[in-house]
């Protein structure tokens, strides 16, 4: 008993441990549905939309500051073939004083060449005076056996086009794309957009303000199988770009 008391006493007199702040900043991939990249297509948007903004969630490591700090987001020149100013513009953004998170804004522009090609913008955080610490990767909040279940690469790729692309989340878990429409093909997706008149689908056609309701999806599904039935009566099977027949699941 005396020994324990002695140890406690000695420890309490030792010098305080000092935390040295080394601020860092990273893209908060926990907030992104598609963790490492997004395919952005103006073809899925209104024909009148010439500019749009993609927001990148940002988070800091280290202590909050009592002043605003610029987000050091840049495009990796070697791995980016979109032209700054022509196809995109990284807008100035800050982590506000006494805040841990921010949103960096990337302006993307609808140019004629996007009709025939897909361009890449690889965004990266670079060390700065405000954020000298380089964070090479981040880890998930979710854990497995006490360890983070995954880690993320530091960059974020925007694939920019005005062509119809496969929605990133088509095959995602719980995707209503997959449930109502089945396997993706470009021919099928074009048919879906023509029949439904809908170009914006949101995350997995299920989540977020851009997603259709389940009642809307049931109506879309009905319109699609009816339109395909009518198409096939006149033209025979609809064949996609891979030579497969376009079909919809039997629900």
């Amino acid at each position: 008993m005396c020994l324990v008391t002695l140890v406690i006493g000695i420890t309490s007199c030792s010098k305080e441990l000092v935390y040295k702040n080394m601020p860092g900043i990273y893209i908060d991939k926990e907030k992104l549905t598609a963790r490492d990249s997004t395919a952005y297509s103006f073809a899925e948007k209104s024909a009148a939309l010439m500019l749009d903004t993609i927001y990148i969630p940002i988070k800091i490591s280290g202590e909050m500051s009592n002043t605003d700090r610029a987000v050091p987001l840049q495009a990796n020149a070697a791995r980016t073939n979109a032209i700054a100013g022509t196809h995109y513009q990284i807008l100035s953004s800050v982590v506000k004083a006494n805040e841990l998170t921010a949103r960096a804004a990337v302006l993307v522009k609808r140019t004629p060449d996007l009709k025939t090609r897909q361009l890449r913008i690889l965004l990266e955080i670079v060390p700065s005076a405000d954020f000298p610490l380089t964070i090479t990767n981040t880890k998930t909040n979710s854990t497995y056996n006490g360890e983070p279940s995954a880690s993320y690469n530091p960059g974020y790729l925007i694939k920019l086009t005005d062509q119809l692309l496969k929605p990133d989340t088509w095959d995602g878990s719980g995707s209503w794309f997959k449930y109502y429409f089945g396997a993706y093909s470009a021919v099928k997706f074009k048919f879906i957009i023509e029949v439904t008149g809908r170009t914006v689908w949101g995350d997995r056609a299920r989540y977020g303000p851009d997603a259709p309701t389940s009642a809307e999806l049931q109506i879309y599904y009905t319109k699609l199988i009816t339109a395909l039935y009518e198409y096939e009566k006149i033209n025979g099977p609809m064949i996609d770009e891979t030579g497969n027949q376009v079909t919809f699941p039997k629900l």
Partner: peptide
């Protein structure tokens, strides 16, 4: 015409093929 029902007023999604 088929309606999944489920709402206080039915909405018919479309005709059987």
């Amino acid at each position: 015409q088929f309606s999944t029902g489920g709402t206080s007023t039915p909405l018919f999604q479309g005709a059987l093929l």
